Computed example of a mutant assay.
Amino acid sequence: MPLRLSKKQRDILIGTILGDASIESCKKEDRIQINHSDKQKEYVFWKYQHLKEWTLSPPRRIGYKDKRIGKINWGWRFRTFSHPEFTQYKKIFYSGRKKIIPSNIKDLLVSPLSLAVWYMDDGKKRPDCRGAYLDTICFSKEEQTRLIDCLRNNFQLVNTKLHWNGDGYHIYIPYISIDRFKELIKDFVIPSLAYKLPYTRNDFLPKRQKMVVQNPS
C-alpha cells in the first residue's frame, strides 16, 4: 500500500511549514527538513515521533558556525526522505526557493493543531500584557493580510492585525482575542514550550520594572 500522510501529520506539516520547516529539492521529489536549537530538543523529537515513518534516521545534534562572531551554535535536525507528498507541499508553499503564503491558505490552515505548531515554531507572548505575536516578517504585507483573514475566518480571532515591530510587520493577536487563541492551542503545546502560552484575563501579569532615573550630581 502506498505511503500516505495521515490527517494529523498533514496538520503538523502545515503548521511547521508556516513556521521553521523548510522543503528541500532532491533529484526527483522533495523532502522536509526540521531544525531547531538545543533548547528545543524535546520539540524536535516530538515532531520526529509524529513523522517517524517518513524518515530514515533519528534527529542528530548539529553545530553551525556563526561567522559574525566565530561561535558554534548547536541544534537538532532531522529530514524526511523525498516523496511526492512533500513535492506537492513544495508546489503550494514555494515560489522557486522562496516560501510563500498561497492564495488558498484558508483551505489549508483549518486545524487548531496546525495553529499550535505554527505558534510553537514562530510565536511568542507579550511579556508586558495579554497578547501574542506570530513572527511573519519573512512574508510580504499582502501575504500576512491573507493569513490574518484566515485567522479571522477559520478561528474567529477577529481582532488579529498587523503590528509594526521596528524591523517589519508581524501578526499580532491582541487582548480581546487572546483567551480564544489560548483555548485553541493549549492542549497541543508541549510542556517544554508552555512558557510561550500567552497571558489571559485570569492570569496575573508580572510586575513591570520601574525605571530609576538618577539626577546628575
Rank of each mutant, 00 (worst) to 15 (best):
R4N: 11
R10W: 05
D11P: 04
D11Y: 10
I17C: 04
I17T: 12
G19S: 07
A21W: 03
I23Q: 04
I23H: 03
E24I: 14
S25N: 04
S25M: 13
C26H: 08
D30E: 02
N35K: 13
S37Q: 12
S37G: 08
K39M: 07
Q40L: 11
Y43K: 11
R60W: 09
G63F: 11
I69F: 12
K71M: 13
K71P: 00
N73P: 00
G75Y: 05
H83N: 11
Q88I: 11
Y89G: 01
K90C: 01
K91M: 06
I92Y: 05
G96S: 09
G96T: 07
K99L: 07
I101L: 03
I105C: 02
L109R: 02
P112Q: 05
L113C: 07
S114W: 03
G123V: 08
K124C: 08
D128L: 03
G131S: 15
A132D: 07
A132T: 12
T136K: 03
S140C: 09
K141S: 14
D149Q: 13
L151Q: 06
L151A: 05
L151W: 05
R152G: 15
L157N: 07
V158G: 09
T160D: 13
K161T: 15
Y172R: 10
I178C: 02
D179A: 11
D187V: 07
Y195W: 15
Y199P: 10
F204E: 14
R208N: 09
K210C: 03
M211W: 06
M211P: 00
N215G: 14
S217R: 09
